[in-house]
Design a protein around this nucleic acid. Structure first.
Lengths: 210, 210, 210, 210
DNA sequence: TATGAATGAGACTTCATTCAT
DNA sequence: TATGAATGAAGTCTCATTCAT
């Protein structure tokens, strides 16, 4: 948290904080992690000062946005696992959700620049582990169900994931259903049995958690 | 071109120009299209003044870098078509080449920011058409060969392409063969016969050329 | 006074006020007259709001701190005159006291920045006069006693005073007894009989009270 | 130096640099080490950009100003020693020069804030040593001549020095010859034979060079 | 023609002060 | 009344671009 997480925020401060996080996510998705702080403040309908009081610097803001997104993603991952009939269905639902919610920011944002900021935060790190573990559960489950080819690892899925999360150039993004088709094609790649031989060994969770 | 395209450049001027383009591509890939002009100049071992004499502003530089990359890509596409035994092989080779050459910059760079700059240039636009037409050739050919599923369009392939071109977060990019595996999985998605039903209609070349 | 000087403050308000003055003096000595209001508030263990309720702006706060210090100094001056056997002893005691109490703030603080603020306040002005008059008493007395050379004026002493009050660079201030030695050397300068001829005419109280 | 000291500056750049140093010294003396960079730039008749190109940040500027002053002081110290008939005369001349040249900045500026900046610079450190050694020469010489009392050390003189260098409150500084009288009184303190017993032991050069 | 110095607009951040709770 | 949140002006610094050498 930016300040003292112990004291619950005053109602209005809470509202501001949420608005800022939401505005920042939007700006980051649209303009990348260098989006002007002042514009973020304006989009959140607060003064710059307020933004800075809550998030002392850009890094903190990025971290908090990532944290927020991770939290939501974790919840959705859990819900997918619990509510869907098969692991494969859970995987598909989770992928779709992430795309819709533009989980992108914290994944895509792992762009050289913002990457270190996020990776160095212990809380985010913890969340990442939980998330990966849930994904692992889905992938292994779907492999057991025979829905996912055996020669891939959870890391491979995460990787495709990251690609899918990227903001598409506006021109392409505006084509109807483009993103959904990409997703479907990738999922078909994951199901291909037998697929073509893949180079190197499967990428696992461990590869992603140094 | 930045200055008079009619007059061929003197040898040293030519060398400067090439160094700048190369340095700019590298910087753009590494730091995005906002990389400081002065650093680009330094990387090219010229003064800022020289950089600006050749490319009056950032937009011009971006455009020229994109043009340069497109040109090379076009040549490689032609070569692939001519030298490979099947259309599918040509497609695979071209995808692989693009990835290696980080064709990314001008494709990925079509990121909100630099996008318009590139799209608005008539020469680049022309090159894009040629490139897409070559790609179309490969895809249709591969479909005729029975290597690519019939329910996809060239636009779908281009889209997967763009995703694949994106710079991966450093952490992931450093995993051995990660990019190759992604590419292979995507290609398997393209080959899946029968694949799962895809949403919406195929994305064609026309969808990408407004 | 900041608010209505007529109504005596409630006990807790009084305590707050004293804490703020004390905290402000400390901060001013340590950081200069630009010390952040919020830090002063924190050091006084009150909210900024409380600080501003009591002292509507920085100038007021500075004025009040100066006033407080002048008051104490005046009391000490009186006590010195009354309790010490000779005027010279009184002078020495007073100089020493001032130094210890870091009378500096309001004297040293008469630094370009905060100077005008203090000088423009009629109450402080009055206190200054009283203080100078007491000092005059001591100096003239000590001259009559033959302890202070005749060719100096009370203004000269005040001047040396101000110098002595300055906060020494930390490095020097931490040397054992450095300040005391300076004081002693200056006092010896005042006693030198015959001293070397001094340039210009003696500086008097009037010179300091325009 | 701020940039590469190896390459001599272009003539105009050199002029700018000198103007900036001079302007900065003046501003620092008048407003303290927090004087707005923009005002310094304006006073030097250059843009902020130029100021920052030459001195990447405030600390560097402070360091360079200090360095410049030390250099001049060292030269004057040498000249005093060589040209004056006695060590005492050299000492008096050097003290007077320093005052006039407002050697203050780097000495007085050793104000908590700017202090560390200066002390941490190895070149300045070296210059300080040379300067102190020259001062030591003068003091010891003047003691041998019987002009300075034996119970003081060079550090004591340096200390008085620092006090003397401080910017006096404007009101006092404008009194004719005030500074000169202070100086004379202090020098008389140094000459007092026998003076009053001084507390603690003499402060030496070593005390000032940790 | 090549260089790198100068400029100034704009982004980041801090804090004095006001105001809602 | 006390608190601390919000505001926005002011200062710091960076960099795209122009221009003198």
């Amino acid at each position: 948290m930016a300040v003292d997480p112990g004291t619950p925020l005053r109602a209005d401060a809470r509202r501001n904080r949420d608005q800022i996080i939401a505005a920042a996510r939007t700006m980051f998705v649209a303009q990348g992690p260098d989006a002007p702080m002042e514009e973020i403040a304006r989009a959140a309908a607060v003064g710059v000062g307020t933004l800075y009081r809550r998030f002392p610097d850009r890094e903190t803001l990025i971290r908090e946005v990532a944290l927020d997104s991770f939290t939501r993603a974790m919840e959705e991952a859990r819900a997918s696992i619990e509510e869907e009939p098969t692991a494969w269905d859970a995987l598909v639902r989770f992928v779709r959700y992430s795309r819709e919610f533009r989980l992108s920011i914290h994944l895509a944002m792992i762009s050289a620049q913002a990457g270190a900021v996020i990776r160095d935060d212990p809380t985010t790190e913890r969340f990442r582990r939980v998330l990966l573990s849930d994904l692992d559960h889905m992938v292994k489950g779907a492999q057991a169900e025979g829905q996912v080819r055996p020669d891939i690892g959870t890391g491979d899925v995460a990787l495709l994931f990251v690609l899918l999360m990227r903001q598409l150039p506006h021109q392409l993004d505006s084509i109807d259903g483009a993103a959904e088709r990409c997703m479907a094609l990738m999922l078909d790649g994951l199901r291909a049995q037998p697929g073509s031989p893949l180079p190197n060994r499967p990428i696992t969770c461990e590869d992603l958690l140094p």
